[in-house]
Amino acid sequence: MDEQKAAFRQELKENLIDWLQLLDKTADDVKDEEPLFKEGLGLDSLDAVEIVILMQRKYGIPQAEVEGKREIFATFATLADFIESKRTK
């Protein structure tokens, strides 16, 4: 993994923890290949909505891009790759 990608992932993890108020977690707790929801990071559908809004506000990805693509929320890695490829800011 090149450095730029690693740096982006680190930044995204911090943003997620901050936005979702995961107070008991640090960036290192968010594992790349672990599921985001339920058994992994333990997020729920309230959080899903928040992630979409985060993507919209911080990375300029319109909501329409996300619609119907449940698979991008599978793991942190899939989410990060998606945001990296679609970000406009």
């Binding site: 559908s45 899903a48 909505v49 979409v52 909501q63 996300v66 619609e67 119907g68």
Partner: peptide
């Protein structure tokens, strides 16, 4: 039934 229970559309 839609994505995230339609919440995002409602927010829009």
């Amino acid at each position: 039934e839609g994505f995230a229970g339609g919440i995002l559309d409602a927010a829009d």
